[in-house]
Each structure stands twice: as structure tokens, then as C-alpha cells.
Amino acid sequence: MTTAMQPGGGSAARPSPSGLADVIDTILDKGLVIDAYVRVSLVGIELLTIDARVVVASVDTYLRFAEAVNRLDISQDKEGLPGLIGDMQEGGAKHKTKGALEAAGEKLRDFAADSRERAGQRSGRAGKEGS
């Protein structure tokens, strides 16, 4: 059942959560939590949850970035990164895109506006930004 990641030549990879990292980011601190009194406590689970969340920039991070800059080859242009992206480009499975149902878009848009407000999660609207 394991589906390997399969970015199709620089396009968005499709299928399901691939690596363990994706799984960890998803199921350890998201999803429903059941009442403590119904639950049988298990050793180690809370620990797992905490471990999964720690991302703090530290001096070590800074030094690592500095070292990475130091190693940058000045003459290197933006495309000279075969080592980094090479292994991600394997198995470029293309997926077919069937005609989309545009009609649904309208309805959803209204709906989306509402739910976004409720979720309070969307970060404002920014204009087009090039990168």
C-alpha cells in the first residue's frame, strides 16, 4: 500500500502521504482526541507527540546556514542542483487531469469564504507576488 512519492518532473507530486515525516506531521498532533477517562493510557505516546513538534531555530541552525553559504559556489546558477533534487525526480509518474467541473467552483467559493472566516486561519490576501 505504500506509495512512493512521485513528483512528475518538477510538478506537484500527487499521491498519498509518502514518507514517515508526512505521517508524523499528520497523525501525532491532529485528529480527534478522545476523553481521557475512556482511554487506556499507553506508555510513550505523549512523548512521541512532543518529539514531533520541536523545531526551534538555534545558534546551531544559524551556524549551519552560514556554513551552507560558505560552501555555495559563487559561479553556480540556480539550476546547478542536481544532487539535491535528483533523487526527488525519479519515477515521474504523470497523472491525468480530467476536465474539471467548473460549475462547482462558484458554489464553493462562497462557501470557502465563510469557512475561512470561521477557521480564522487564512492569512490575508496578498497580491500577486513573483518569486
Partner: peptide
């Protein structure tokens, strides 16, 4: 946004 019902920004990991 126009294609989704709702969205949630996940923290960077």
C-alpha cells in the same frame, strides 16, 4: 482558496 472549502496553515516542521 477558490477550490477549497477551508484551509489550515500548518506550522513549519
Amino acid at each position: 482558496a477558490g477550490h477549497a472549502v477551508a484551509s489550515v496553515v500548518r506550522p513549519a516542521t
